[in-house]
Amino acid sequence: MAEPVLRVENIRRLFDVSKPWLERVVAREKPQFLRAVDEVSFEIRPGETFALVGESGSGKSTVAKMVVGLLPPSSGSVHFSASMGGGKVRPGAIQMIFQDPYASLNPRWRIRDIIAEPMAALNHPADPAARAARVADLLTLVGLSPLDGEKYPHQFSGGQRQRVAIARALSSEPQFLVCDEPTSALDVSVQAQILNLMRDLQERLGLTYLFISHNLAVVRHMAHRIGVMYLGRLVEVQETEALFAAPRHPYTRLLIDAVPDLEQIGRDRIPVQGEVPSPINPPSGCTFHPRCPLATEICTREVPAFDGSVACHVAQDTMMAGQAMP
């Protein structure tokens, strides 16, 4: 098997959410921290799409920011393979696509300048004419016309803007793309266009994706492997088909079962109760135990260790793994 492009080891990120210093000293309170990400480890292989799914507040976007270096981890490490420059990654080898194409494009710049910006910043290619030619190629690649380069972002619809954002990300010839909810702001018919485009580009350019989404159906369509996050921890990592066929962590089951699906016309179900607790004061032991239908006494005391595919006291029992969804 090829060497992983990215290896994330035990990254953790705390945010200081204490009251202002003076207030805290007067009230004799300790500083308070929010554990956005806690001991997350995973690998991404070349040419693969690895997805992180979870509900709001699960820490998936914080992981994405730490991977691209927008946020330093509080502890742990992020390694890229030698093919990307190892310790010091080649500039432009990692790019990001953001959720909201209405916010991620500068409204006062022409599309051609937006797309050429990474090339200008890296001075590669140095020749402006070569850059202009590449902008035209990129626009064609993402399904727009080279003539669109003269326009401004407001002249485009949401889906077209996301195509521009993708063209910009590709302009520095990256190997690795971090996509943070790239289609969540788009309507379904447009979402399908962007998802298809991203898969085509992956095949043509051999890209590796870290794909962040809250939408399980989208993730299933896009990803080769999936990591499920809950309250800052990775609770399960599996190949996509295996995850949907035999989810091992009770939270993964809950999530799959909760998604309304076109196939389930008029189904009645018994949803799992409760909501995601506050990450400032998470439950003891396994943070999922208050909502877990299978929780036992040990779950309230000890944090389950991540064994490479699942972090759960109960799922360790082999009977669980084979048991199909009810």
Binding site: Q191, A192, Q193, N196, A217, V218, R220, F244, L262
Partner: peptide, 24 residues
């Protein structure tokens, strides 16, 4: 029908989603 094909389903994995070109 385009809309139904454009929605990724949990049940069966399709290679390609149906695409409706353009926007409303």
């Amino acid at each position: 029908s385009g809309l139904m094909g454009a929605i990724p389903a949990l049940g069966a994995k399709v290679q390609r989603l149906t695409q409706i070109s353009g926007a409303m």
